[in-house]
Design a protein around this nucleic acid. Structure first.
Lengths: 192, 192
DNA sequence: ATTATTTTGTGTCATATGACATTTTTTTCG
DNA sequence: CGAAAAAAATGTCATATGACACAAAATAAT
């Protein structure tokens, strides 16, 4: 599982071999089975987490207890409750596994130390956050302006690999539409 | 208008008086009248912008040409198309004034130089982005899980000052609901 | 294999929503 | 102050959506 990370980070950041190994040496490998939780609402998120294998979701719950999926994440993505991780406040979200998964964890403090020692890692994280932020802006634009059908088609096109690994009712949750509406949309496209 | 910024930044960042003045000295004051544009879709966003007075909105347009408001910003807020600003790509959004406004602009390169000279400014910007990101996550959660009524009430409570300065149909746009639905909700609360 | 569980698909129904058209009210500006 | 423009409110209508209940299919577990 280290190899996945080596490949990923070599591609994205300009690190010396020593720096890369220093980062890896500080990581904590962890395996989780499907349905196991990485983080629960109310807990404090303490790890910066990279996915080397598997699929996870982050979700919040509404007043009624319904689950609303904030995001999916698969291999080569980072996942954490960023708000809780940076503020130290209790997490508003759950993170659990949709498949058996393999992760690399860095405790927040450890990662911060690495960032001060390795400026390029700091810069890399800034770039990552910037891209996350842009993706999030797009998501908002879609949420407030697309029709359910457009939301669905956009998702399939944007995340084909996620689409094929995740149950439809979770995609509906992610899109903010009902399971049934998603079915109607799919039915509509079936005979075309 | 400099005074507004001095007060703001003194409160948020631990800068020396010299650093503060260095930052201010690099700024470009600008006044815009209501309905004037700070940025148009397709242009490249070249300035990091702080609002000392007034009210602006950032919006994107859909296929049909309809305006969808991404955010409002008033005194003591920053505004720019962050994606365009950091990537140099054409902006997906418009930014215009809802009131006569006074702004301080820093060209992207100038601001970056300031950040390298003043680490605390760099750190401050990171904190700001982190909080923006968290706000954005909340917005997504609301968009995919709240009813129109809940969205409205949440907005009034979260941004009372903006609420009182902005036309209702723009709030509807921001919330991703129709003007008429917003009226119905308000009517519903009127006689209660 | 068989059972249990999860996921997907359907049908019916009530209603909230968007779309459109029009009027009223408020604000802006000459 | 008066005219013009902008914003808000209202009424009607068609329909897409969510909610519920249940059936079918696929997947996982024993």
């Amino acid at each position: 599982m280290f190899e996945v990370f080596r490949k990923y980070i070599s591609d994205k950041a300009n690190l010396t071999p020593e720096e890369l190994e220093m980062i890896l040496a500080a990581s904590i490998p962890k395996k989780l089975k499907k349905k196991q939780y990485l983080l629960k609402q109310g807990e404090v998120s303490r790890y910066n987490t990279f996915i080397t294998k598997g699929c996870l979701r982050q979700y919040r719950t509404g007043n009624d207890g319904a689950e609303h999926i904030m995001r999916f994440a698969i291999e080569n993505w980072w996942i954490s409750d960023r708000e809780s991780l940076t503020t130290g406040l209790p997490s508003k979200s759950y993170i659990d596994c949709l498949e058996d998964s393999e992760l690399l964890l860095w405790p927040r403090e450890t990662f911060n130390e690495l960032k001060t020692k390795i400026p390029e890692l700091h810069a890399f994280e800034e770039r990552t956050l910037a891209r996350s932020f842009n993706a999030t802006q797009n998501r908002i634009h879609i949420a407030i302006s697309y029709t359910p059908e457009e939301k669905y088609l956009n998702f399939v096109q944007s995340f084909p690999t996620v689409f094929n690994r995740v149950p439809l009712y979770m995609i509906a949750s992610y899109l903010g539409i009902s399971r049934e509406t998603l079915n109607r949309i799919r039915k509509h496209f079936a005979h075309k």
